[in-house]
Design a protein around this nucleic acid. Sequence first.
DNA 1: TTAAAATATGAGTATTCCTCACATTTGCAA
DNA 2: TTGCAAATGTGAGGAATACTCATATTTTAA
Lengths: 213, 213
Amino acid sequence: MEDAASPVSPQEQIASPRRAPSQQRSRERVERMLAAASALIAEQGSDAMRMGEVAERAGVSIGSLYQFFPDKRAIIWALAERYTAESQACISAALAGVSDAEGLGQAFSELIDIYYRLFLAEPVMRDIWSGTQADKALRQLELADSRANAEFLTTVLKRLRPAADPVALETTALLVWQMGEAAMRLAISVERQEGDRLVAAYKRMALRELLAE
Amino acid sequence: MEDAASPVSPQEQIASPRRAPSQQRSRERVERMLAAASALIAEQGSDAMRMGEVAERAGVSIGSLYQFFPDKRAIIWALAERYTAESQACISAALAGVSDAEGLGQAFSELIDIYYRLFLAEPVMRDIWSGTQADKALRQLELADSRANAEFLTTVLKRLRPAADPVALETTALLVWQMGEAAMRLAISVERQEGDRLVAAYKRMALRELLAE
DNA sequence: TTAAAATATGAGTATTCCTCACATTTGCAA
DNA sequence: TTGCAAATGTGAGGAATACTCATATTTTAA
């Protein structure tokens, strides 16, 4: 029986630390918790990650874990947030200096290569983004991340094609970015050789779309 | 239907009925279980679907549920399998008669429209494919489905562009299809208007790729 | 020095998936 | 029809695991 007048906000709340660590000691422990979670996800996947195991490996009690993370998703979310912050900085830097079509082609191609290697090499990121869809907060984070990344692209596109419809450029950028992530998810789930072909084909398609018209 | 005929991988965890219903009575009950599961997924999502609730709504005991489905994923898998079978038949029919570029453009465009409407209208399918990534068996089913659908496209492409590299055509078809699903997932998670723009942009991109060269 | 705030603990609670020993129904051969 | 094995039905209970909370310890700051 659900309470119609529950105090919970209408939206799905974003998981945030139940209590921000303010002392040096607790900050270090939170780092250990995140490191332990990351390692366990790399080994077994986030679904198989057990809270008790995270606590044990971090050398803290289960209660301490819940002191700083309201629930299991919050730990995963915290890791995801770090990755998005890192990658956004990387993408922003790669696209910042682009001033012509050739430059965009070059920068975009390198960016995809970097991302692909990251997907192949980083099991934690792979797992988190794979499971993304099942979790509303993560889905929102991913969408926000996609929008942010697409915006870097949009900025470049508007510079290169000032006559084009801005809304159309935004749509294109978001779509191209989202498709890139889909292409890479597909690529890492098949044989390496086929994956490479898929990423190459995606690059060609995306560049044709970004540079054409 | 769930016999060795399906492209079952040599791996573990393909969920198959623990016991195939052989009597009319049990077949009807299994239908009720699937209907109940479908309704609950539509209402709350597959994650929130409780096995006890499925049994209750189907008017059977929890034991009966497990008589025919080895675990929770198996029910979701069974529903997913039905949807893929349906949609594959639909796609196959839509692309079967295509014999020229214009026909492909027409058929593909209509296909995307149908799929988009389906994604918008069918919460069960949406939920299942959203959560797909977290479940290996489902992920494999989705990949197999994508490959099957892409094969219909490949067949057409090979007919239209006999001089092209067959492997490249296969790659293109798989990529285009996978991107389409990504585009639609994105489209249904944003405002309707933006979603429509995204689907339209995808169509344009995909057709450019399919017909060009 | 000391009291309040922050942090740490882990046994216990709640929830949910799933099992299993036993009851009932159905198909079918005698 | 009758008998019986196979198929099907049942739900209390086992097992796993996310999460809580009363209590203990450490740190901060006056």
